[in-house]
Design a protein around this nucleic acid. Structure first.
Length: 750
DNA sequence: GCGTAAGCAGTTTTT
DNA sequence: CTGCTTACGC
């Protein structure tokens, strides 16, 4: 029989069933150490595939189960909504309780929560809006123009970048050094930063950087508030510590002062976000910043085969600035990492797609495969090929749901209804769909708003009472404002999803896309329908809008069997049985710009990216490179990436892929130069191929007799004369294409 | 105010 | 070769 007092008891302690600590049984000894080292500063160096997420969530559970803290006394922060969601779900599952209201989420969500509680200390109203990149840029554009700056030489996005970097470093305009202020964008960036912050306060808005920067300011200016948070959060947990920026570091340090129960989990070898402000030094310096810190290394990898792991480890060992880990695996050898060459991008795509298809025919799900590229544009060739051969694929990244134009427009309508004084929303939709309100009318509204310190909506309201505007725009604005009022009137009477539908219809927005003849229009209408459906899941319009501004991702249902295409950055934290790594060529990967701008440090980050790529693979990693690539409409020779040379030969098989032996398309577009007869000869150099599967052969033997002075033929550049031989690299003066360096195996004697 | 042509730059991306 | 922004003409 159920005893009420018992029920009460177990629900308040929440965890007596877990006192047997069964949740610890699933851990290996090191993981267990990382979980049980609860008090004081702890750095967990979690190599790829070592069960990081399990440790994180178990640790959280352990702190609660051991009675050290109540749920509200924990603060666990991650970078992405996805990681946050995963942690919440796993904790909820282990404990069998809801984690609603717990401080488990992203840095920014935690910052926003704090700011909403104390907005008034920062000159904000608790209802402040959170701007996204698009809003920021439009705002900055206005400010740039207001200062009369040349938008060509100093585009708003440049300022956005500079300001963001300052915010990443925890610097308010006053804290930027004079030298740096004078330096950045001809000295224009710092004053603009001031303008920008001032304007944000005026419109009661913050950007993402502010969520932390304002919180820092709050901590500094209101020590009592900081003290309260310090007391509340007895245990701090941080994921992906290697990706934290200075602002986040300062924020954590402030909160951890006192009890110092801070646990940071990360992997210095997977730090790939320096360009957006991440400071790898944060993790390298941890011991120094938190004296007496325990360091736990998770080095047992459960994901990849020994070959893959050995290759990745040897590669990353070329980096100097690292804490050092030795990954090992209980698994056996598996397949060596494959390195294969292709003639050009189209050829490479063809080879990879054939291999994916061959694996599929052997029973592998496409879901278990991924093509990981350095830069987004590289997915195009793969898409084209996948479409022609009919292999289903999904692209991760690209324009996310809430960043699409139609979604942002719709949300601007919702915002203007929920928050009448939202200027940025007003501007966005005032002439969408086209209502005949151009820059001239808008300028009048702006001038009045500025002069009387009004929001744009208020200013518009006053303006139509004057005769400043011509009758036509005046009536249009009048009608629009009446629409706003009507919709606001419905706010309390209609479920917000219904109101949204009504609003999109009555504003003419849906009609605008229905009339649009472009191929994307139907998709956009579909997205709008989806948006309205998604809204229904929230209690209120306000709740939905907060979700939108913080959680700008959408997870596509992973139902269908598709191969995944994405960037290496996007792949961090994921794993696949088979990973294709195309484009391992100097200039592409490592990326030339990264090298030019960032030097040795950047090269190390590129190498970490390569490491991340390799360690995504459970069973197979297939690296490829092409001999020539079309870059901006011009053929360029390509050298294999230096990273290929850094892989240990013992764990690598150089494969010749099934290439030109079969004339099954893919070559149609491939060449200004290449006469077909050459393919026969090229194919002769390749080994026999069975069923589209890569065949492992020893390194391609150097074609005999290529020496300086000889005439050679190259598929893309035609005929030329060898000028110099440098190992397997030939410098050739081509008759038509000029002087290029190419690798030996891609030329033939002419 | 809106539609079309020249001009130019062109990694990685989360919140 | 693209896609985006800007400048012009109607």
């Amino acid at each position: 029989m159920l005893d009420v007092s018992n029920t009460m008891d177990s629900s308040t302690t929440a965890t007596p069933a877990l006192h047997s600590a069964t949740y610890l049984d699933a851990l290996n000894p090191t993981q267990r150490l990382a979980v049980e080292a609860v008090d004081g500063p702890v750095l967990v160096l979690a190599g790829a595939g070592t069960g990081k997420t399990r440790v994180l969530t178990t640790r959280l559970v352990h702190i609660l189960a051991s009675g050290r803290a109540k749920p509200w006394q924990l603060l666990a922060v991650t970078f992405t909504n996805k990681a946050a969601r995963e942690m919440r779900e796993r904790v909820a599952l282990t404990l069998g309780t809801s984690v609603d209201g717990w401080w488990v989420g992203t840095f920014h969500a935690a910052g926003a929560r704090m700011l909403r509680q104390h907005a008034e200390h920062l000159g904000l109203k608790p209802s402040f809006t959170i701007l996204d990149a698009d809003d920021q840029q439009r705002l900055l554009k206005q400010l740039t123009e207001a200062r009369g700056l040349d938008a060509k030489k100093l585009p708003p996005r440049l300022f956005m970048g500079i300001i963001q970097r300052w915010k990443d470093r925890g610097l308010t305009p006053d804290q930027v050094s004079t030298a740096e202020g004078a330096d950045a964008a001809d000295g224009q960036a710092l004053p603009l930063y001031r303008d920008y912050q001032e304007r944000l306060l005026q419109v009661n808005a913050v950007d993402f950087g502010d969520l932390l920067l304002h919180a820092l300011k709050l901590f500094q200016q209101q020590p009592d508030i900081l003290a309260r948070y310090q007391q509340q959060f007895r245990y701090l947990l941080v994921d992906e510590y290697q990706d934290t920026n200075v602002a986040q570091y300062l924020w954590l340090r402030a909160l951890a002062q006192g009890h110092r129960n801070l646990c940071c989990v990360g992997d210095d070898d997977q730090s790939i976000y320096s360009w957006r402000g991440a400071e790898i030094e944060n993790i390298l310096r941890f011991e120094h910043d938190f004296p007496g810190a325990q360091i736990v290394r998770l080095e047992c990898n459960y994901r990849s085969t020994a070959h893959i792991l050995a290759a990745a480890s040897a590669l990353i060992a070329h980096n100097k600035g690292r804490l050092g880990k030795t990954l090992w695996t209980p698994r056996d050898g598996g397949e060596p990492v494959t390195v294969q060459a292709a003639w050009d991008g189209a050829d490479e795509a063809r080879i990879v797609c054939e291999q994916a298809d061959a694996l599929r025919r052997k029973g592998q799900q496409l879901n278990t495969m991924a093509v990981l590229v350095r830069a987004g544009f590289q997915t195009r060739e793969f898409e084209e090929r996948l479409i022609t051969v009919g292999i289903p694929y999904r692209i991760v990244g690209g324009a996310r749901f809430y960043e699409r134009q139609e979604i942002r427009d719709a949300i601007a309508y919702f915002r203007i209804v929920a928050q009448p004084d939202d200027d940025l929303a007003f501007e966005r939709i005032v002439n969408v769909p086209k209502r005949g309100l151009g820059p001239a009318s808008l300028r009048s509204i702006h001038i009045l708003a500025r002069a009387r310190n009004l929001s744009l909506t208020q200013a518009a309201r006053q303006l139509i009472e004057t005769d400043e505007l011509k009758p036509q725009p005046r009536n249009t604005i009048r009608r629009l404002l009446a629409d706003f009022d009507r919709w606001r009137g419905q706010l309390d009477h209609l479920p917000h999803a219904d109101l949204a539908r009504l609003l999109l219809d009555e504003s003419g927005y849906t009609q605008m896309w229905r009339a649009d003849r472009s191929p994307e229009a139907p998709g956009r209408l579909e997205n709008l329908r989806e948006l309205v459906v998604a809204m229904a899941e929230f209690d209120s319009l306000g709740g939905f809008l907060e979700h939108v501004s913080l959680v700008m991702d959408n997870d596509e249902a992973a139902g269908e069997d598709k191969i995944t295409l994405m960037t290496l950055h996007a792949a961090k934290g994921l794993e696949f049985d088979t990973v294709f790594l195309p484009g391992w060529e100097e200039g592409i990967f490592p990326n030339m710009r990264a090298l030019e701008e960032g030097g040795a440090k950047s090269l190390e980050e590129e190498r970490r990216l390569a490491y991340v790529g390799l360690t995504r693979a459970r069973a197979r990693a297939i690296i490829s490179h092409a001999a020539s690539r079309m870059v901006y409409g011009m053929w360029q020779p390509a050298m294999p990436s230096r990273f290929i040379g850094e892989l240990p030969p013992a764990n690598v098989a150089h494969a010749a892929a099934p290439t030109a032996a079969r004339h099954d398309g893919g070559w149609e577009r491939s060449g200004a130069f290449g006469p077909t007869r050459r393919w026969g000869e090229a194919a002769r150099l390749q080994p026999k191929v069975i069923e589209g599967e890569a065949v492992q052969i020893p390194d391609i033997p150097p074609a005999a007799g290529v020496a300086a002075g000889e005439r050679v033929f190259h598929q893309k550049f035609g005929y030329g004369r060898v000028q110099a031989v440098n190992g397997d690299r030939l410098e050739i003066e081509f008759d038509k294409a000029g002087r290029k360096t190419v690798i030996q195996s891609f030329v033939e004697p002419a």
